[in-house]
Simulated assay, not measured.
Amino acid sequence: MHTHPLGPKHLLLTLLLVVSACGREEPKPEASMPPEADGPMMSVEDEGRTVNAMTCNGTAGEWHGCRGTGCSVCTELVAAFPYYFQNHPSCQPNSICYGQYFQCNAACPPPTEADRNYPAACDGSAGQWNGCRGTGCSVCAELVADYPCYFTNHPNCAENNICYGSYFQCNSKCPAPTQADRCYTTTCGNGICESGETTSCPSDCGTCGDGLCQSGEEFTCPLDCEGTCPGSMCSDGSCCPSTGICPNGRHCPL
């Protein structure tokens, strides 16, 4: 068998094939991305931004005591502070945190001693109405829903939205609502004795014995209307009624 010696061209081609094979790398499988951490997505606002009450995101620098939203405070963390939610009405109790705590909103700060006990100045006052819960100054919102000016007229009172039908004695600073808390001006002559009309509007608030003979009293209040009868008088001093028969059954001329 005859062999042919390799020429320079053959040697160069062989060398290039060897180098090409050695520099080839097999593709490596891509590394799997770690799974996202479990738990609620909590966005944290930058410092200096206004808190959006609708989103209740966590606020930078606040404590980790919420889950779900920055206003959903984990109840186990404030269990020793029974007045926390009353003092922070923007916060909602969350009983399903399961030990996972995230950043709260600035509206829901860490609890303090002020959330543990309420001030004695807001105890219930004897004789006051039962319309509060928590403190005598925490007025149950549903009981004053028809009185939109109540909290404006009584600035020392706080609105309590979590009374759940349990009502206790209020402080004297937070009396029972009146017509004045409905936010409209009283009108003398509308037949309703409203707050402030007791002495200024006898037509609405007059009573027999006040010295004024008011409409409707001519036949019922001789004390105020004596001598003003349009007709005769009955033996008891009252005016002859429109029926022409006195209270004792006797007829009287009109």
Rank of each mutant, 00 (worst) to 15 (best):
T14F: 11
C205N: 03
N87C: 07
C205Q: 01
M233N: 08
F102P: 00
D224F: 00
G209Q: 06
S95T: 15
R116Y: 03
C183I: 06
P222T: 03
V144R: 00
T135H: 04
N94E: 08
C170G: 00
C252M: 06
P8G: 14
A37R: 14
E36W: 11
E197S: 02
P119I: 06
P40I: 07
P247M: 12
M33Q: 15
T178Q: 15
H154T: 01
C132E: 01
F219W: 10
S20Y: 10
C221I: 04
C229V: 01
T207M: 13
D204F: 04
Y167E: 02
N156P: 02
D146S: 15
T69P: 04
T207L: 11
N130M: 09
N153V: 01
E36A: 10
C225I: 00
C225D: 01
T135W: 05
C246F: 02
C149P: 06
G70T: 01
C193M: 03
N57A: 11
S203E: 14
N190S: 11
Y101P: 05
T3Y: 11
G231A: 07
E142Y: 05
F85G: 00
Y147E: 07
S215L: 10
A37V: 12
P175D: 10
C163D: 04
P8C: 13
S20T: 12
G191R: 10
G124A: 11
G136F: 00
G39K: 00
F81D: 04
T112V: 08
Q86G: 14
H2G: 13
E218G: 04
M233L: 08
V44R: 03
G237D: 05
I192K: 13
G70V: 01
L13A: 15
G231P: 00
T50G: 08
C201M: 02
E142Q: 10
Y83R: 06
F168S: 09
C122Q: 02
N156K: 09
P111I: 00
P110E: 06
V44N: 02
E25C: 15
C163S: 02
Q86H: 13
G7Q: 11
V44S: 03
C91F: 03
N171L: 07
T59K: 10
E159L: 10
G211N: 09
A120W: 03
T152F: 02
G216T: 02
N117D: 14
Y184K: 13
M1W: 15
P34F: 07
E36D: 08
G231Y: 00
E159R: 13
F102S: 06
